[in-house]
Every structure is written in structure tokens, then in C-alpha cells.
Design a protein around this nucleic acid. Structure first.
Lengths: 149, 149
DNA sequence: TTATTTAGTTCGCTCTAACGAAATACAGGA
DNA sequence: TCCTGTATTTCGTTAGAGCGAACTAAATAA
């Protein structure tokens, strides 16, 4: 395959890969009964750990009032817990409830298994290459996203 | 790096890669003034070509009434055009307006350039490996998504 | 102590996007 | 032709998620 064709195929495959990722995320959120904003908030908490309500507002661009409602919904659905900050008792820390999200781990089983099977077909050197590619590719996307802010 | 660590790192990098893909998609949609449903519909049209309103309903899970409104919004924003089917004049074919989406190509410039730069650092053999990985990985995600339907 | 600022919540409102039911327009067979 | 079924639209309604303004509680400065 010529380099030119190779690059064109990669562009197409990359688009397709992104699309399937988005569709999978959407499907998982739907199955968990989450809206866009709720899913995004849960992801924030997963990546950054427990956050104060105001911090969620900062990261999400929502107003404090909206964040209150958002936390209400997530709490009602059993995904997070409110905790009064003992240092500053005005603040409310929002924390993921592991017992609440645990039941949905099964949703990822197919993907996890599928990827494990996929990885099993590669040598260590090949996996190192793929790992590096994934990291650098993610960085490109992150930078591009920031450039749209 | 041990195989075990490698696999763990890949799992993390893969999650991160997905997250950045979703964030990029979200940011692009926001910039284009599109809601989730509208973006999804445009993506359908991009991948499958012009579709009848009813076909969009089928693919999206929306009711015909909702699809009518959806097309109204996309049309008002200049992204699609309604065309009466000449064979069956009850049907309405929805087609992407290239002149409507063209202006937003710039949103992808950073990603395209970034990825080109990234690809440039690999040999043909390495790119073949990456291409194969992307395709197989997308297939895993597609299958997993279908499993949640 | 008292006043001010800060963190979060509550309230009332609005806007959007979805829905079901009824209407419209056309196709295709009796 | 006339009738039945199909594709889409229109209409009226509903539910959800966001906002600003007003409120409560707690920290901090005067």
C-alpha cells in the first residue's frame, strides 16, 4: 500500500474509530439513565476525584444553581454522595458512590474482553507502539479541543 | 515494561483516548450550534448519504414527528436540504448541503494537522500496524455498542 | 460583636426537544 | 374510481435542564 493510500486509510479509520467511541459512550450513558451533563460530571469525578460543587461548576461551565440540580439528580440515581466539608462547612464535596456505579461495570465487559483479545494478538514491541500512538493521538485531540474553547 | 504494566497502561490510554474523542466531538458540535441529536443526524447523513425522513427515524430511534422537527432545525441552520423524492412523492429525502458545512472545515484543521504530524513520525510498516489496530478496535466498540442495544 | 463575603440551595421562569394524535398528500390495489 | 395504507407534517402538550434572583449558612474581616 502506498504511503498516500495509507494516510488516507488512516484518516478514515481514525474518524470511524472516534465515531464508534462516541456511540459507545452514548449507549452506556443511556443505559445508566444519564443525560449528557450528568455523564460528563461523573467523568470529571472519576478523573479528578471528589470535587466541591463550585469546582464542578468551574469545570463544566454551569451556574451554581444548575450544579445543585445536577448533583440532586446524580444523588437520586445513586451515583454520587454529598459530603459536608469538615474544614469549611459551607462547602459540599461530591464523591462517586462505588456501590452505585459498580452494577454498571458489566456494560464494559464486552469492550474490555474484546480489547484484551485484540491486545493478545500483538507482541510487546507492537503494544508499546500502540500505547505511544494512543497517548500522542489523545494529546492532539486534547489540544485541538482546547483550541476551540 | 512488563506485559502486565503494558496492558494496564493501554487500558488507561484507551479510556483517555475515548474521552478526548468525545470531548472533541462535543466541542465541534457546540461550535456549529448543534444539539446532540442534530449532530448525530448529520453524522448519519455523512456516513450513509442522503436519507428519507423515515430512515432517519429508524436509525435514530426518534418518532416521525420528532424527525420532522429535527430536519426543520437542520434546514434552518443551513446544514441540510429537503428534496421531494421523484419516485415516491410522499417521501422526503434529506441531503447534506456541502455549502452549509464547508465553513466549519476549519474546526478540524488542528486535528488534521496534528495527526498528519503524528503519522509523519512512523514508518509505513508502523502505520499499517496502527491502521489495523484502529480498524479492529473500532469493530470491538461497534460490537459492544450493538450488544447494549 | 457586627458586617461582609463566599458556598450552596431554593424558587420561579423559560426554552428546547421530545412525544402522541390528527391532518395532509400521495401510492397502489380492488 | 375509490379505498386503504404509507410518509411526512402540524398541533398541542409535556418533561427536563438550564438560568437569574433571592435566600440560608458559614467563614472572615473590621
Amino acid at each position: 500500500m502506498s504511503r498516500e493510500r495509507l494516510l488516507a486509510a488512516l484518516a478514515e479509520a481514525g474518524r470511524e474509530h472516534s465515531t464508534t467511541a462516541v456511540m459507545f459512550h452514548t449507549a452506556v450513558s443511556a443505559r445508566m439513565g444519564l443525560g449528557m451533563t450528568e455523564a460528563k460530571a461523573l467523568d470529571l469525578l472519576r478523573r479528578l476525584g471528589p470535587l466541591a460543587a463550585g469546582e464542578i461548576a468551574g469545570h463544566s461551565g454551569l451556574t451554581p444553581a444548575s450544579v445543585s440540580g445536577l448533583i440532586d439528580r446524580l444523588e437520586r440515581k445513586g451515583f454520587v454522595r454529598r459530603i459536608r466539608d469538615t474544614e469549611d462547612r459551607r462547602r459540599v464535596i461530591v464523591e462517586i458512590r462505588n456501590d452505585g456505579v459498580a452494577g454498571f461495570g458489566a456494560l464494559f465487559e464486552d469492550v474490555v474482553q474484546g480489547l484484551e483479545g485484540l491486545y493478545a494478538t500483538y507482541t510487546d514491541e507492537q503494544l508499546e507502539l500502540i500505547l505511544d500512538f494512543l497517548r500522542r493521538s489523545a494529546e492532539v485531540q486534547r489540544a485541538a479541543t482546547a483550541g476551540l474553547g
